[in-house]
Nucleic acid binder design. Sequence first.
DNA 1: ACTTGTCAATACGGTAGCGTATGGTCTATC
DNA 2: GATAGACCATACGCTACCGTATTGACAAGT
Lengths: 195, 195
Amino acid sequence: MVYPDRMKNHRAKKSPRLTPEIWADAALEAIEQGGLSSVAVEPLARLLGVTKGSFYWHFENRDALIRAAMRQWEKRAIHAIAEASRITDPRVRLRSLILSSADRTTAKLDLAVSLVAGDPRVRPFARRVDRRWLDWAEAAYREMGHTKTDAKHWALSAYSAYGGLIQILRLNPDILKSKRAWAQHARHVAGMLVP
Amino acid sequence: MVYPDRMKNHRAKKSPRLTPEIWADAALEAIEQGGLSSVAVEPLARLLGVTKGSFYWHFENRDALIRAAMRQWEKRAIHAIAEASRITDPRVRLRSLILSSADRTTAKLDLAVSLVAGDPRVRPFARRVDRRWLDWAEAAYREMGHTKTDAKHWALSAYSAYGGLIQILRLNPDILKSKRAWAQHARHVAGMLVP
DNA sequence: ACTTGTCAATACGGTAGCGTATGGTCTATC
DNA sequence: GATAGACCATACGCTACCGTATTGACAAGT
């Protein structure tokens, strides 16, 4: 993930050399690596093998790139939530959230976004996705027979545990390094959150 | 917390006009507000009512300030853990962690630090404090009769829940806005984490 | 072949922040 | 009250990045 090689995915020659989506993806990767301050026009351009002359053709300014990146992220997050909703059994469905902490792709990006969600340009996107996950979890708990307020508390607990865990594991990768320890902890959390 | 007024706390005339500790405090406040990129020499100097001529007398460079700020934070965090260890009943002790999520002073700073803990200058400090909290929780669970590995899982769960909750509440202050709802959720979490 | 529109390179000015060098001011102390 | 050291101001050069303006390359359609 570096390269001045823009020929990946064998883009048809007719299509533009760079698209706003490519820029947005690069911005998301930058956020994952170094936060919002890493979303800088010239460095990203170097990373993509072009100059900022390209950037300012596709975007109004830096803020517009950030917004586009967040739109892209929200879209994918919504899609992930929809995928996680297809599981019929609510208990299995909830467990899938816990298990997704181990996914070193979406979890890392979700975390990175939440880390920069203090910024007013990111906050509304993060809030909407938070809301959706909370609603998703609440629905699962309701299907399990909990009252509305009860389900809300369970949902908040579950989503908190999810977010907190991936953050701690990011900083302390030594904590659940063995697959065995991780599976054990996943069982523990499942037993705690899925009564 | 702003002003070119350096005469607060009625400092004796003999003492220096600014101390490294004051700079470190200002840096911590900046981290809380805008992350590491807000720890900038000239803006902080303006905030303190001086110029960077003062700063470079007290510190080698910007990195030295960041390190000093993190040392100060770690010191206080260790003190807070020691305070939280004085409670005799392990269950009450654990509940104190949950309740401290509501403390809008330490919790916010702890969160802000964890948000920038990806930076190599911050990471070691955050890791050490994480470790201490985990050990603290593990000890409590052991006192409650759990085995070592079991206590470790409980501790990780509890600390995850703590970190995740304050992060979500920061972004969604509307979620537990009423005192009643918060107390209810605290009871819920306590029931979940303190069996 | 000529034109048009798309995309990118180059060159430019502007700002914010880092770090240095040097000089100034106050205070304690003799 | 002269001096030394602690503390701060000012002025400077440097780099990184933002945004604009202009020009250039290249493809598609005519």
